[in-house]
Amino acid sequence: MKDTSQINPLENEAIYIMREVAAQFEKPVLLFSGGKDSITLVRLAQKAFYPAKIPFPLMHIDTGHNFPETIAFRDRLVAELDLELIVRNVQDSINEGKVKEESGKYASRNVLQTTTLLDAIEEFKFDACIGGARRDEEKARAKERIFSVRDDFGQWDERNQRPELFDMLNGEIEMGQNVRVFPISNWTELDVWSYIEKEKIEIPSIYFAHTRATFLRDGLIWSADDDVVYREDDEQVEERMVRFRTVGDMSCTAAVLSEASDISTVVQEIRTSTISERGARIDDKRSEAAMEKRKQQGYF
């Protein structure tokens, strides 16, 4: 490489944002879910500070309902890159009586994570939390800022957001407030996948086609893991060739039928897909304004 004119403008922007976080905040943290977006963030953070180490830890809010492949992948990545990892468990919040486990057909721990996350932010006094949310994911996220200020209660006031001009990021906050930072705000799903392909970034195996015991509900394909995903007796288990497009909880992430078994076929599939990424996330389908409501309450 002779000059840097061919570097993707989105990558330049994300690296710039990572450096602003490190410079403007005292205790930043990178929220890591084990999904492709947060794995991409780790690579971007590496690039931003190389040859120095990433100057902040990773934190995983573990619902206990993750795909086992994701957890194994997380631990390997952290060991290979010599990163600091903090894990906080939703199960602990349940045990302490802070949140109540949902029950029934659509039970999920997805909403419960918010309490565990906010408690962890307070415990470690984090002033900036870097996340992999993208504006193209969902309508309410399309209005999210790159530096998004949350109040003492972790809440998002969408009517009163700071304007963001040029690439100047205002990270001034009061004690108790914190900022959610979204370095890949302007990336689309295809941008992320293309980047993973170009950079040869390793991702968990569940993103690629595999055979899995599954059942059908509401036209979506669910993992038949009876410990985590509630299943009615008439919802029959069948082996299917599937992959996952997002990696959330097993209880709220549906699979898609797919033969795409490597990164290039996955990119090809995304390019021609007619279903949006979050179309397979039941957490967004609860109501039309589901994401907006969760965000106001402090959800990522």
Partner: peptide, 16 residues
Amino acid sequence: IHFYDQEVQTASRRSS
């Protein structure tokens, strides 16, 4: 001039 682990001759406009 470095971009990640690569050395380059020229830093083009708008690159980090």
